[in-house]
Computed example of a mutant assay.
Amino acid sequence: MRDHESALQQALIAHLRADSAIRALLGEPARVWDQAPRDVDWPWLAVGRSESRPVAADGCGVEHTLSLRCASLFSGTEEARAVLAAVRAALHEATLEADGVRTVSIRAIYADVFRSNDQKRIWGVVRVRAVTEEI
C-alpha cells in the first residue's frame, strides 16, 4: 500500500508552485511549503492540518482533508483573498500525481480570511478535500 498522504502533499505543493497565478502572488519560485522557513518573504502559503481515511475496503482509495494557510502582511485582506482564490482555481478538479498515487477528485470546500490578534498579519485558510487512488 502506498503512502497517499505524502504523495498528495508532494503533488499538491509541486502543482501550486508551477501555477502562474500562484507565482504572480507568491514570488518566483513560489513560496509554498510544508513548513515555512523562519526568515521568509511575505506572503507565503503552507500546508497545515491534514487528515485522511480509507474510502475503499481494499485501502486503495483515500479521502483527505487538508488546510492550506496563507500569511500576509498586507494592510488589508485583499492579498490573502487573492491567494486563496488562486489556490481554489489551481486545484479545482486538477489531476495530481506523485509516487504511484493520483487524485480522483480535488476541490476547495472552505475558505476563511482573518486578522491576527495583534492586527499586523492577515491569515487565510483554504480547506481542500481530495480523494486519491493508486495507479
Rank of each mutant, 00 (worst) to 15 (best):
Arg2Glu: 01
Arg2Val: 02
Asp3Cys: 00
His4Ala: 02
His4Asp: 00
Glu5Pro: 00
Glu5Asn: 00
Ser6Met: 04
Ala7His: 02
Ala11Phe: 10
Leu12Asp: 08
Ile13Cys: 03
Ile13Ala: 04
Leu16Pro: 10
Leu16Lys: 08
Ala18Asn: 07
Ser20Gly: 02
Ala21Ile: 06
Ala21Gly: 12
Ile22Asp: 00
Ile22His: 01
Arg23Cys: 04
Arg23Ala: 14
Leu25Asn: 07
Leu25Glu: 03
Gly27Lys: 12
Ala30His: 00
Ala30Lys: 01
Val32Pro: 02
Val32Lys: 07
Trp33Tyr: 13
Asp34Glu: 05
Ala36Glu: 05
Val40Thr: 14
Trp42Pro: 00
Trp42Glu: 14
Trp44Gln: 00
Trp44Phe: 12
Leu45Val: 13
Leu45Asp: 05
Ala46His: 06
Gly48Gln: 12
Pro54Ser: 15
Val55Cys: 07
Ala56Trp: 06
Ala56Thr: 15
Ala57Asn: 09
Ala57Arg: 06
Cys60Phe: 09
Glu63Met: 12
His64Arg: 06
Leu68Phe: 09
Arg69His: 13
Cys70Met: 08
Ala71Met: 13
Ala71Cys: 12
Ser72His: 14
Leu73Gly: 09
Leu73Ala: 12
Gly76Trp: 11
Gly76Val: 14
Glu78Ser: 14
Glu79His: 14
Glu79Thr: 15
Ala80His: 06
Arg81Tyr: 06
Ala82Asp: 10
Val83Ile: 15
Leu84His: 07
Ala86Met: 04
Val87Ile: 15
Val87Cys: 09
Arg88Ile: 10
Ala89Lys: 05
Leu91Asn: 06
His92Ala: 02
Ala94Lys: 10
Ala94Glu: 02
Leu96Arg: 13
Glu97Arg: 13
Gly100Ala: 01
Thr103Tyr: 07
Val104Glu: 07
Val104Ile: 11
Ser105His: 09
Ile106Tyr: 01
Arg107Glu: 11
Tyr110Glu: 14
Val113Thr: 13
Phe114Glu: 05
Arg115Gly: 06
Asn117Met: 14
Asp118Leu: 13
Lys120Met: 08
Lys120Gln: 12
Lys120Glu: 00
Gly124Arg: 10
Val125Arg: 08
Val126Trp: 08
Arg129Gln: 13
Val131Phe: 03
Val131Gln: 11
Thr132Ser: 04
Glu133Lys: 05
Glu133Met: 13
Glu134Met: 04
Ile135Val: 14
